[in-house]
């Protein structure tokens, strides 16, 4: 298996199709993973070791071996895989995530808790702090 084939096998085990959600390779490519890796130079060495693992016996035992014997490689491949997947626009659309968005609001609008009585109840329960003058 090439490094690319090994990686996609590992990634599809980590993120399979499930309900409405696609598996990793349905929406992301190896190139997407390497693009993500460019944001994290610190993970590159581990990633290279991870995709060199012998996955001929299946992705799960290969990942078990990485997790057991090479934590940094396991961390690198899982971090890049989950980040690339949830950066994908199709995946974000499916889970309803617009990203960390800008939300406009009126700072002077009267908040509901001021008019619906909820904060009045908090005040009615009385003082919570212990005063100290004289101590």
């Amino acid at each position: 298996m090439s490094g690319e084939q090994t990686y996609l096998a590992l990634a599809d085990f980590l993120i399979p199709a499930h309900g409405k959600m696609p598996k990793f390779s349905d929406v992301c490519s190896y190139a997407d993973a390497t693009t993500a890796l460019d944001f994290r130079d610190d993970l590159k060495e581990g990633f290279v070791r991870a995709v060199a693992v012998d996955a001929a016996g299946g992705a799960e035992p290969a990942l078990e071996k990485l997790n057991r014997e090479d934590g940094p490689a396991f961390s690198a491949v899982t971090t890049i895989t989950i980040a690339a997947y949830y950066m994908n626009p199709r995946v974000r659309e499916l889970i309803g995530y617009p990203g960390q968005e800008n939300v406009q609001y009126d700072s002077k609008a009267v908040q509901p808790y001021l008019t619906d009585g909820t904060l009045t109840k908090v005040i009615a329960r009385g003082r919570k702090y212990r005063p100290t003058p004289g101590l």
Partner: peptide, 18 residues
């Protein structure tokens, strides 16, 4: 690790995210 990956990943994100 399987507890956090595979179908469990999708289920955890669906339950928690948002």
């Amino acid at each position: 690790f399987q507890d956090f990956w595979g179908g469990n990943l999708h289920d955890n994100v669906a339950r928690r995210f948002g």
